[in-house]
């Protein structure tokens, strides 16, 4: 009887643990099966090399490059904002702030992540873009720069919170060793604590990258939803996610090639995030070996 109970508990736990794996497999399965008809219609070569993405137009083109460039550009801008600010914020919280004050500051910073992304989207469109236009008069109403910056601000807490955890877990005897030879706080933070915590900090960056790649509302609202093969942040563009939203909101018939294109877009995004996760894992392993 007791053994039966143990077996039962084990099975329940296994199912709970397996559920996320099954869901992921299910999503991948659907994305792949729905993408197959698309590739019967469009060759992989066109998909990867065509410079236009216009599945909804009369003269349809199905080149993923404009969406990739849009995704890549917004993500890069967001990371340029989030990684330096997030890392410095984490170093400040971990190395400078007294514990009592940290208990107040950290939740406030984490609140940035609790703001709904649609709010960030309109914040970018109606506040940041006009502000940027004062500096860059030629900037259009929809642009990648403003969306990227706001997205960066949005992911600061993801980067800083995890980085801070990693820095705090650096044993204090390493800090003492650094101070004991006459190092300052900032030298200790940047030369000892951050390198020692780097594998954890890398995970924080990877999470930030994944968030930026998958972010939808900010870019859909502020970047213009126009697939555009460009690396100029002042132009409007569309990301993979923004395109999916755009199509989902329309009334495309089920099974049409335009409808299937969102599954292909989704599959591309999944591959992209997977690549970054693998790079992240590899980096982590590399830094852990070094320690």
């Amino acid at each position: 009887m007791r053994r039966l109970k143990e077996r039962l508990i084990e099975t329940v736990l296994f199912l709970a643990a397996a559920s996320s794996v099954f869901v992921t497999l299910g999503i991948v399965g659907i994305l792949v099966t729905e993408s197959i008809p698309f590739f019967e219609h469009v060759s992989i070569k066109d998909f990867l090399t065509d410079t236009e993405w216009t599945p909804l137009f009369e003269n349809a083109h199905y080149g993923i490059l404009p969406l990739l460039s849009g995704t890549f550009l917004t993500t890069m801008i967001a990371l340029l904002v989030a990684i330096p600010l997030g890392t410095v914020a984490a170093a400040f919280l971990s190395e400078y702030v007294r514990p009592g004050i940290k208990e107040i500051l950290k939740p406030i910073l984490e609140l940035l992540a609790a703001v709904p992304t649609v709010v960030y989207g309109y914040f970018a469109l109606l506040f940041v873009t006009p502000l940027l236009q004062k500096v860059i008069p030629s900037l259009g109403g929809f642009n990648v720069l403003s969306a990227g910056i706001v997205m960066g601000v949005m992911i600061i807490p993801y980067v800083s919170s995890l980085s801070e955890d990693a820095m705090r877990s650096v044993p204090s005897h390493l800090r003492e060793a650094s101070f004991a030879v006459g190092a300052s706080r900032i030298q200790t933070a940047f030369r000892v604590v951050i390198p020692a915590a780097f594998s954890g900090i890398t995970s924080a960056y990877i999470l930030g990258i994944s968030r930026a790649l998958g972010e939808t509302m900010v870019v859909a609202i502020a970047a213009g939803m126009q697939p555009n093969l460009t690396l100029n942040p002042l132009e409007p563009s569309a990301t993979i996610t923004a395109f999916i939203v755009q199509v989902s909101l329309g009334d495309l018939p089920h099974g049409s090639i335009g409808y299937q294109s969102i599954y292909v877009a989704g599959l591309s995004l999944l591959c992209l995030t997977l690549c970054f996760n693998i790079i992240g894992l590899w980096l982590r392993k590399k830094f852990q070996e070094k320690e």
Binding site: P171, H173, L174, E176, A177, S178, A180, V192, P195, A196, K290, E291
Partner: peptide
């Protein structure tokens, strides 16, 4: 220190 604490 008491415990060897080389930097990584």
């Amino acid at each position: 220190f008491q415990k060897p604490n080389p930097f990584p």
